[in-house]
Design a protein around this nucleic acid. Sequence first.
DNA 1: CCAAAAGTGTTGTTGATACACCCATGT
DNA 2: ACATGGGTGTATCAACAACACTTTTGG
Lengths: 233, 233
Amino acid sequence: MTETTTQHNKPAVDGITIDCVFFGFNKESLEVLLVQHAQGESKGKWGLLGGWLQLHESADDAAQRILQELTGLEDIYLEQLKAFTNPKRVLERRVVTIGYYTLVNREDYNIKASLKVIEAKWYKINEIPDLIFDHNEILDFSLLQLRNRVRQAPIGFNLLPEKFTLLQLMHLYEEILGIELDKSNFRRKVLHMKLLQALDEKQKDVSHRAAKLYKFDADIYKKLTEKGFNFEF
Amino acid sequence: MTETTTQHNKPAVDGITIDCVFFGFNKESLEVLLVQHAQGESKGKWGLLGGWLQLHESADDAAQRILQELTGLEDIYLEQLKAFTNPKRVLERRVVTIGYYTLVNREDYNIKASLKVIEAKWYKINEIPDLIFDHNEILDFSLLQLRNRVRQAPIGFNLLPEKFTLLQLMHLYEEILGIELDKSNFRRKVLHMKLLQALDEKQKDVSHRAAKLYKFDADIYKKLTEKGFNFEF
DNA sequence: CCAAAAGTGTTGTTGATACACCCATGT
DNA sequence: ACATGGGTGTATCAACAACACTTTTGG
């Protein structure tokens, strides 16, 4: 009835893969990096970043490795979504995939430096094409999860550069949650949380009043959570 | 890089299992049903309800089947937690497990009628023994998940009998969330949501004023969610 | 001077919190 | 009569939404 029962010795799967929804935020829109498949029955179609889970590694490690191989980035913020196990998700074979989503700062990611071999492209969240396998389902699930998590913990900052303005932050939340926010009320709320560190710096090269720059301080957040702090948006 | 690449043909796993945290609510305490293992290296130790994922079934189907085999219950409320993939979670072999948690009404479950072959026992949530493999980790994770989900959607009702009193419901939330609630404020809040259907029935055989019985109406909830309703506790 | 975004202030409403209190019922 | 939980009412305070207003800067 559990792993010690050797009733079914033959594995019920041909393998386990990892698939990552790779989120980035560009100006005012949330985007996902997709790669084009060059071979096999799915030639020409777009899909999520993925690879095989190896014998010796955990899924988290596998995801970091695969993303490093594909994009060159290390220590990316990522969270597991869940296992996708529909027996018909891949034709002919039984492949279970473990879905992830990752949040990256677009400034850290240089599309030319990486993915030389494969065609890669950013897609706006509401302009996603038909993807291979069940990748559309994984992507839809990741969006729900992101919208949930972003209200409960300050993970959205991973999508922004280190220094950002309050309005940038607000636009990020507007885009992710699909709502409109009031500038004044948003400022009050977010500053009241005392999660942000105000910098002695302002925007440059903007054709309007330069906004103050802030940075998210993980240490402050840590201290606040220890005191029983709740991030609610 | 994805499932179509046949670079790694040999499966990186010896098999995939399902493990379920089986929650029940008894009077004033949240409990979990554990089973004792009769064979193998884990003989005598307690663990979660589990079994192997079969070739033709999804993880959700597998979980339902396994729970049916073990407890006799059908159509149980369940949610996938995530995949647990630490390569050292099981000695000697590579077994990935997909964790689930399930909420059942204790009145529906008769411990004698089922699990004849295996030793099974309810454990209070803060009296959990050392479990096999990484089952303690799975259980801890499920508690976090349950606490989160119970605030966002009316899933807690699955732990109660069909007809219940407001105080019972309040005790359920107090126990799950580990907080104390104000009777008066709780009543107002929950009744204000209009999720509950007041019945023309009262408690019986209680040595104090009999409380009104309510029932959770899934249809009402459905209509409310369609209008953009938010269940927040 | 104007456009555009930064940033401040005000006001009404809602909802949470903390209590105090009365009601019904079995022993 | 009293213990036990059921159930109601109210005053206070904090959070939020809506919106009007002023400030800074480049062109």
